[in-house]
Design a binder for these strands. Structure first.
Length: 405
RNA sequence: GGAGGGGUGGCCGAGCGGUCAAUGGCAGCAGACUGUAAAUCUGCCGGGUUUUCCCUACGUUGGUUCAAAUCCAACCCCCUCCA
């Protein structure tokens, strides 16, 4: 896993922790990182007010970048968002207003402030590609930038080729997306001396386009690095739950649920996730992943608490861990549990719906009939009333409390 | 523009006049077994209702019929082939 060849802390750390899939010129980048400060960026979409677990690998890379003495840039795709990203299958996604985009950016920035240091010597910066994209003149852009892109080559890119092979429509704006992204890199290279772009493995082609553009236009040397696609041991995509994406922002997903997400990691993923999603040192991680049988649960608790601490703060992580311990180990109730406020005792079915454990009363009824609903640990009947102070559970994992309105 | 094919529940995909809230599969939920894991087995899986009841639903809008997801018409959208 680790590559002892690397001399720079930066690449040695990324390599040892499993972040690296491909690098354009590993040796040259390593030399550059060993010799001085490297400025690197990752681009993010800002169509939603929160990023999700799928973005976490790259966020952690930026964190390690900074921790090993280099300078991170967070690029927000405000400009491209304004155009409307057509990469999805359905074109019908809503166009966001400027106000929404600004609000999303502000919301997303709060997450980065947890992971990165925006002050100090290697202060992270956040920039929006709207700064340069929206002011572009079409003809001059074609002349200065467009001439460096060969359509023949663009047609060979997976993102394009797959679409053409399957005879699915590919809009012109989408075809131009890779040019915009390459141009982003050039701008960051010029404005901030940014010489490294990182991203998921699906971004390889786009990243390489950027490094090529920089070489052709400015004769500069820039690098690219991609992470492997992180999947779960059972092959499913990371971070998708029944409820949807696992959001990083507190207001999109409570800390307790975030903690629970990590706590429920598959056995086979624990070691890998500890390396990728926590700051723990490698010796400790090796000890944790060596735990046998049920002991692996201790490692999962550490994983959950450490990962939550990074994203939500230590206090929130400890609180979530305490709630989990009180709820699962002792059968009681912790403070972080979801709650449902009532003025007077209510029917168990309404309580289950109110807590969000059932989408409808019919579903709540089924839950009760199958013995999955419990009040203070005892199986509940359909007509049972619950009052403030009682704990309501749905299945083994979902617990909530009734509180007075 | 011409000729075909198709739009069904979160997804895939059957049904082609009544017995259809609609076969299967996936996903999901619950139960058993466990370790808040995996695998396996069982049950559930539109909404309401203490239930052989009522709503809403098979692209949209009309029509035929005692009765339509199923037939007809128009429209919208997607795909294939031809121009």
């Amino acid at each position: 896993m680790s590559d002892p060849e690397f001399r720079s802390d930066f690449l040695r750390t990324l390599s040892a922790r499993g972040y690296i899939h491909q690098v354009t010129d590993a040796a040259a980048l390593d030399a550059r990182a060993a010799a001085g400060v490297v400025t690197a960026y990752v681009g993010y979409d800002c169509t939603a007010p929160s990023l999700h677990i799928g973005n976490l690998v790259s966020i952690m890379m930026l964190r390690w970048l900074q921790k090993t003495g280099h300078r991170p840039i967070v690029l927000m795709g405000g400009g491209t968002t304004r155009v409307g990203d057509p990469s999805g299958k359905d074109e019908g996604r809503p166009m966001l207003t400027s106000e929404q985009i600004e609000a999303n950016k502000a919301s997303i920035r709060r997450i980065f402030e947890r992971f990165l240091d925006f002050d100090g010597p290697n202060a992270a910066i956040m920039v929006d590609n709207d700064e340069w994209l929206s002011g572009l003149g079409y003809i001059s852009f074609l002349r200065d930038i467009g001439r460096h892109f060969s359509v023949n080559r663009m047609l060979t890119f997976d993102s394009v080729r797959l679409r053409l092979d399957r005879e699915q429509p590919l809009s012109f704006i989408e075809f131009n997306y890779m040019i915009c992204q390459a141009y982003d890199y050039l701008e960051l290279f010029r404005r901030h001396g940014c010489a490294l772009q990182m991203g998921g493995s699906d971004q390889w082609g786009n990243i390489v386009n950027g490094t090529d553009l920089i070489r052709r236009v400015d004769g500069g040397e820039a690098f690219g690095l991609t992470t492997p696609l992180i999947t779960r041991a059972d092959g499913a995509k990371m971070g998708k739950t029944a409820q949807g994406a696992v959001w990083l922002n507190e207001d999109a997903l409570p800390a307790f649920d975030y903690w629970q997400f990590w706590r429920n990691t598959h056995d086979a993923d624990v070691g890998r996730f500890l390396r990728l999603f926590t700051d723990l040192d490698m010796v400790e991680i090796e000890r944790l992943e060596g735990l046998e049988g049920a002991g692996i649960n201790d490692a999962k608790v550490v994983l959950a608490t450490e990962a939550t601490a990074l994203c939500r703060g230590r206090a929130a992580a400890e609180a979530a861990a305490a709630t989990a311990a009180a709820t699962f180990a002792d059968g009681g109730a912790g403070e972080d549990l979801p709650s449902f406020a009532v003025a007077a005792p209510v029917n168990i079915l309404d309580a289950l719906v109110g807590l969000g454990f059932a989408a409808s009363k019919g579903e709540a009824r089924r839950l009760v009939q199958q013995g999955g609903a419990r009040v203070d640990g005892e199986a509940a009947g359909e007509t049972m009333l619950v009052a403030p102070g009682q704990k309501v559970s749905a299945g083994k994992k979902r617990h909530g409390v009734i509180v007075a309105a």
